[in-house]
Write a protein that binds this DNA or RNA. Structure first.
Lengths: 234, 234
DNA sequence: GCAATAGTGTCTATTAGACATTATGGC
DNA sequence: GCCATAATGTCTAATAGACACTATTGC
């Protein structure tokens, strides 16, 4: 027996997609083309389809609204935002927010329902988003800062092969403070299940300097690593 | 403009309520009185009301189905489970799971839609729940084990005033392994923002032995503590 | 006295953090 | 040679873990 007199909901997904741009943590936002909040910045997202997995909906909306290919990017549920007054529209809209990280910070292309899609530094966009998206962004920011402590997620900001200097740059961008290069080297090289050497080495960024060893992440983005890389200890 | 041709959802909340019983981690489950899964164990939960906050719905369902008073218990969103086939019924039902901890492991009273409500050791109930509730329980178990590392949540398993032996018992029950009493003392006493002494002391459990100092938690359940109490380091 | 539990001391091995030093390239 | 970056070494302070020891109660 199924009661059909329970309240009905519309369900959306929103995606907080982070990347590293110019040494800063950047987030992908769209300019809304429709009411409510037309003209405001918002997180990409949209309605969950019939019979669609939540995480698949997040991936699809990302492609549709921004042209960013969701294949191969680290994507995980963040939390659900369901305050009764969070959407101005007549029906109640609950959103399952997702956290994602990409190495491809290429220019997005505005798609359906969006006038524009751009990467912006998180510090610039904080406090200026539609709906409760500022709150979602704040949660996502804290989550990613926390996740890179005990998973390999930081590597998802980089190409498959990278140097320790690049990886350190990710930690610095996410945490917002500099890290001692020497200690970072030792700590990450000692971590048992994070990095594996490719044997190759590349010239450093400026062209000058000793070539750096090239590494690969040896697991999946959200896999736990043996010894955490703690914020407090960097 | 609001499109009314988007899919509609039913939204439920489920609650994983943990307590400590006989030195073990116990979870509150109900025996379902209605189809689907009538007669099976399940987590307490139910449909979110019109205009109701998600966390309030979780609290309400807990009271309705088990008689457990939701006031004053640590309750937090866990994650949302929305696989298209997770409910056998015709409409899609998405559930926002919540994690809760209580010090009152008193006998629950079966309420609406439930034939019985009982506390069971988590090890006994794992693998025997309706819907995808085994998966939810597994997530909750991992979350609580993780939360007590860097918050004061462990104190929520105990009365407002407690001894370090009692608190150690909580960690042992949740993590499932014994902890050195001496080292635990030193570690927790040194933690800057977890405990405050009441000045009182009480006789130990068996009646025999040196009286133990009585403490209070000095913050809210999910507040971060300064120096984490790491599983790996206990 | 003994048993039991609370709490402290001690030693070792590991680790973070600061910072100096060496290594390897471009110019 | 100089400069820049990569990588290693060194020292100190803090901490986990094992375990011995002392303290305070009931019997």
């Amino acid at each position: 027996m199924f009661h059909s007199d329970f309240p009905i909901f519309y369900l959306t997904v929103d995606v907080v997609l982070f990347a590293q741009r110019d040494g800063e943590l950047a987030v992908l936002v769209v300019e809304r083309g429709e009411e409510p909040y037309a003209g405001s910045w918002a997180l990409p997202g949209g309605f969950v389809g019939d019979g669609e997995e939540l995480v698949d909906a997040a991936r699809r909306e990302l492609v549709e609204e921004t042209g960013i290919d969701g294949e191969g990017l680290a994507l995980e549920q963040l939390r659900t935002f369901g305050a009764p007054d969070r959407d101005r529209r007549p029906h109640r809209v609950v959103s399952v927010a997702h956290l994602a990280v990409t190495r491809h910070a290429e220019a997005p292309t505005a798609g359906t329902d969006a006038r524009a899609a751009v990467w912006l530094p998180v510090d610039e966009v904080a406090g200026r988003l539609a709906f409760d998206h500022d709150e979602i962004l704040a949660h996502a920011r804290e989550r990613v800062a926390s996740k890179i402590e005990y998973t390999q997620l930081a590597a998802s900001f980089l190409p498959p092969e990278f140097t320790l200097a690049q990886l350190r740059g990710v930690y610095e961008a996410v945490w917002g403070h500099p890290i001692d290069p020497g200690n970072f080297q030792r700590k990450l090289r000692a971590a048992p299940d994070f990095l594996e050497s490719t044997g190759a080495s590349v010239k450093p960024a400026g062209g000058r300097g000793r070539p750096a060893e090239v590494f690969r992440a040896c697991g999946r983005p959200f896999d736990r690593i043996g010894s955490p890389v703690l914020r407090s200890a960097m």
